[in-house]
Amino acid sequence: MESTILRAGFRRAITSSYSPAKRRVLIHHHPRRSYATPAEPIRAAAPINFTSDTNQFARSSGGNNNSNSEQDYERLLHRVRIVPASPSYFTATPRYTDDFLYLSSLYRKYQLLPRLAPGTEPRVAWKTLLEYRTESGEPVRQKGYAIMLSLLKRLNKIHTALLPVEVQRALQRYKRRIQPYLNRAKPIEIDQLGRARAVGRRKSSSAVVYIVEGDGECLINGRTLTEYFGRLHDRESAVWALKATQRLDKYNVWSVVKGGGTTGQAEAITLGVAKALLAHEPDLKASLRRAGVITRDIRRVERKKAGKLKARKMPAWVKR
């Protein structure tokens, strides 16, 4: 203590002998402070008890009064900082981040399991981005969700016999409620009279077609093919499935068609004839597929826009 006082006195005496400018610099100069080491070692605070049992808190704090322990516990809850369960809480999309990290961990864990051959994995309809956003309530981006879908598709390629239970649960969570790939079309059967009934559609036209073994007769709405369709192209389109498979003179065709124009009705009959023909001869499916009549053409005529002659054609005076 005495050495500190003497040192301060000598410093004041030396400073008073300097010029005013130099004295100003020395006055504002603060010497480095040294902090004394405490005599006792530093100890960490006792862990905080987050349980709602006030008696346990009272025992840990050494109190005996229940009312005081409840007040102390309430004060503790106001003072402490609640730690979130997941570190992703501080991100903009915590649920998406947790889902992505969980799928990534599953893929790293089971990436060495045997996989199915390409094209043989079960087809799955996954949830859309809008459905996932609605379910999670987060603004998930398209790119981020596409990366998650790629992980789901890789996990879906694991061999079915070796697919772990936790992977099955994870995949089931992201599947749609209704799987369109599980739907199977009802097979067309031949009735007691040897007729096969099928329905074909094109644009706004629909046709109900009956096919039975015969000599090549064709009736549409009670009229012959030549009487009903004036264009040669429409006549050939209506029976193209029979012509492509060389079955024109082996089956009779009856059709009831409505809606749309002549082209749409002819192509609707084409699809109906192809479906009914497969009921009689299923082996013709490959030939009908090559002929392009086994599936429905979903294209429609584009609607007319305001201010235009057709869907896209502008008036002549605009081009000038």
Rank of each mutant, 00 (worst) to 15 (best):
E236K: 08
Y110I: 08
A207C: 06
P38N: 14
V209N: 02
S136E: 02
H280F: 11
H78F: 07
A196G: 08
F90G: 09
N68C: 00
A306T: 08
R223N: 11
L152E: 00
A266E: 05
K186P: 11
R303I: 14
L171D: 01
R123Q: 10
Y96E: 14
N156C: 02
Y174L: 01
G261H: 11
S287M: 14
I82P: 00
L129N: 00
R115G: 02
D98C: 07
A276C: 09
G259K: 09
D72V: 00
G62P: 11
Q172M: 05
R12S: 13
A196P: 15
L219F: 05
S205E: 02
P41M: 12
A276M: 07
G222F: 02
E213W: 04
Y145P: 01
S16H: 12
M1R: 08
A198G: 05
M148H: 06
T37S: 13
P139S: 05
K22I: 15
V301E: 13
R33Q: 13
I42W: 11
V293E: 03
S104L: 15
R320D: 05
G216L: 05
L278E: 07
K157C: 14
T160A: 06
Y107G: 03
A198P: 08
L284G: 04
T262G: 10
E70Y: 01
G119M: 01
R123H: 04
H78V: 04
R177W: 03
L151W: 02
R300S: 14
S34Q: 06
C218S: 03
Q172V: 00
T91F: 10
E189A: 06
L225P: 01
R296K: 13
A146S: 12
D99V: 07
I147E: 10
I147G: 10
Y228T: 08
A185P: 15
T37M: 10
E166N: 14
L151A: 04
A39V: 15
E213G: 08
R75Q: 09
E135T: 01
D72W: 00
T226N: 13
T295A: 09
K275G: 02
S17Q: 14
D53Y: 08
R300H: 10
